[in-house]
Simulated assay, not measured.
Amino acid sequence: MTNERTAALTAAGVSIWLDDLSRSRIESGQLQQLIDTVDVVGVTTNPTIFQNAIGSGVGYGDRIADCAARGLDAAATITELTTADVADACDIFAGIYAATGGTDGRVSIEVEPGLARDTAGTIAQARELWAKVDRENAMIKIPATVEGLEAISETIAAGISVNVTLIFSLERYRQVINAYLTGLERARAAGHDLAKIHSVASFFVSRVDTEIDARLTAVGTPEALALKSQAGVANARLAYEVYEQAFSSERAKLLLGLGAHAQRPLWASTGVKDPALPDTLYVTELAAPNTVNTMPEATLNALADHGEVRGDAVSGSYVDANQVLNAVDAQGVDYAAVTEQLEVEGLAKFVASWNDLTETVAGALKAAN
Rank of each mutant, 00 (worst) to 15 (best):
T2A: 13
N3F: 06
T6W: 00
S15D: 07
W17E: 01
D19L: 03
S22W: 02
R23E: 05
E27P: 06
D36M: 03
V41Y: 00
V41L: 03
N46W: 04
A53C: 12
A53K: 00
G57Q: 13
G57F: 06
V58M: 12
G61F: 11
D62N: 13
A68I: 08
D73Q: 15
A74R: 09
A75C: 10
T79G: 12
A84Y: 11
D85A: 06
A89I: 07
D91W: 04
I92N: 02
I96C: 01
A98C: 11
G101L: 08
G105E: 01
G105C: 07
V107Q: 01
G114V: 00
R117F: 13
R117W: 12
A120F: 11
G121K: 05
A126V: 10
A126S: 15
R127C: 08
D134N: 15
E136S: 13
N137L: 11
A138V: 14
A144H: 02
T145E: 07
V146R: 13
L149W: 02
I156Q: 05
I160Y: 04
N163T: 13
V164E: 01
F168H: 05
A179Y: 00
R186W: 09
H192L: 11
H192Q: 14
H198R: 14
V200C: 07
S202D: 07
V205M: 02
R207W: 04
V208R: 04
T210M: 13
D213Q: 10
A214L: 11
A218N: 12
A231Y: 06
A231T: 03
A234I: 05
A236F: 05
R237E: 06
R237P: 00
A239S: 12
A246L: 13
S249V: 11
S249L: 12
E250I: 13
L254G: 11
G257T: 15
A260Q: 04
Q263L: 10
R264T: 06
W267R: 04
A268Y: 04
A268T: 11
A268F: 03
T270G: 02
T270W: 00
V272E: 03
A276I: 08
L277W: 04
L277T: 02
Y282E: 00
L286D: 00
L286Y: 07
A288W: 01
T291E: 06
P296N: 05
P296T: 07
L300G: 00
H306K: 14
D312A: 04
A313K: 06
S317G: 06
N322Y: 13
D329C: 15
D334E: 14
Y335F: 15
Q341V: 10
A352C: 08
A352Y: 01
S353W: 09
T358Y: 06
T358I: 07
T358G: 06
E359A: 15
V361M: 11
L365R: 04
A368Y: 09
